[in-house]
């Protein structure tokens, strides 16, 4: 049992991702075509006549029937071609390649920050349920999640940039006079360190601080609450009581037994949190002029830029499928109860 059972489970899980990817391709296509409006008319510009709109429609491949358009989309996709974004005029692959690291850097920094704060808080609260520490934790993390991110973001900008002036202007990943480090990973923090450019690292970190804090605040609550909740449940369970009765050290019980078991729901939450963060990204990027994939998608959506919306959603989908796979695999590895059936 055990090893091979888990391996085959993971393999099956990988296979299972395929139908959902196909589902995504279809849903994306349907959704984008359901968007109201005629991108051809929009991009023909202010002074276009019927004829030039028709020309653009042909150029965009929007003159065929829906099945024809779908077939064209799928065949292009099979060749790794996501089409050309009509709003930026560049291949969607290129746009995503350039913008994805910006979004990921922001999201991951926010997530790490949130985990670093939320997990200890949650454990702390769980070990002292209903004490003032517990209540304070609840109130603090809940306050963070209770405000729309764009409001928090704008409020931070107002206070920390406009009034107190401790952060640089909120205009993207670097201030106006700094230049991006040579690209290796696309994460400015890492790339600048790779070439030993501490000045750029500082500049990038300064720009990143406020949006990352905004994002982290938004997800403190689900993480901390889930940690507390599942820790409580585990701490109240029989095997911990047994461990306690056996006189095992409290630290060992807390971290080795309880936390490991409590991780399961936290992991499930993590996937959700990540997804929420990428959603929140859209709004945070707009507030901080962050050149990420979320702001790209919003703009594309508003102008019915089909190729861009499809490409965006598809790359997100692949990202999420991979993330969920990882979570499931971790779940399998951590939880002895899952998968024994094999």
């Amino acid at each position: 049992m055990g090893g091979t059972g888990k391996l085959s489970l993971i393999g099956r899980r990988l296979l299972q991702a395929v139908p959902s990817l196909i589902g995504i391709v279809i849903v994306t296509f349907v959704l984008t075509r359901a968007l109201p409006g005629d991108p051809a008319a929009y991009f023909a510009g202010p002074a276009a006549d019927e004829q030039s709109i028709a020309e653009i429609r042909t150029a965009l491949g929007l003159d065929g029937s829906l099945p024809e358009q779908f077939w064209a989309y799928v065949t292009d996709l099979a060749q790794g071609d996501l089409g050309v974004s009509i709003s930026t005029g560049r291949p969607v692959v290129e746009e995503i390649f350039e913008r994805l690291p910006a979004s990921l850097e922001l999201t991951l920094t926010g997530l790490l920050l949130a985990i670093a704060i939320a997990l200890p808080l949650g454990i702390l609260a769980a070990t002292r349920p209903n004490s003032w520490v517990d209540h304070l934790c609840r109130v603090v993390v809940t306050a963070g999640v209770s405000l729309p991110v764009f409001f928090t973001g704008l409020f931070f900008v107002y206070v920390f940039y406009f009034v107190v002036d401790v952060v640089p202007s909120p205009i993207g990943r670097l201030d106006i006079f700094s230049l991006a480090p040579p690209r290796v990973t696309g994460f400015y923090l890492i790339d600048s360190l790779l070439v030993g450019d501490f000045q750029t690292f500082g500049a990038a970190a300064a720009q990143l601080a406020l949006p990352a804090i905004t994002m982290a605040m938004f997800v403190l609550a689900p993480l901390a609450r889930m940690t507390r909740g599942s820790m409580l449940q585990v701490l109240g369970s029989e095997f911990i009581r047994t461990a306690n009765a056996n006189g095992l050290e409290r630290r060992t019980i807390l971290y080795t037994y309880a936390f490991r078991n409590a991780l399961l729901p936290i992991l499930t939450t993590l996937g959700m949190v990540f997804s929420f963060m990428l959603g929140a990204n859209v709004l945070v990027e707009k507030v901080f002029a962050w050149p990420g994939i979320g702001s790209f998608a919003v703009n594309a959506l508003v102008v019915s830029d089909f190729a861009a919306v499809q490409g965006f959603v598809l790359s997100m989908a692949i990202l999420f499928v991979m993330l969920n796979l990882t979570i499931d695999v971790l779940y399998t590895l951590i939880d002895p109860r899952v998968g024994i059936e094999g």
Binding site: A78, Q79, L179, P182, I318
Partner: peptide, 24 residues
Amino acid sequence: DFLKSSSLLMGAGVLPLLKHVPAH
């Protein structure tokens, strides 16, 4: 095929990169 295309997608690494021009 799908995996092939998705790996193409993720690994499209031969694109013009941000130019590193001397600062200031």
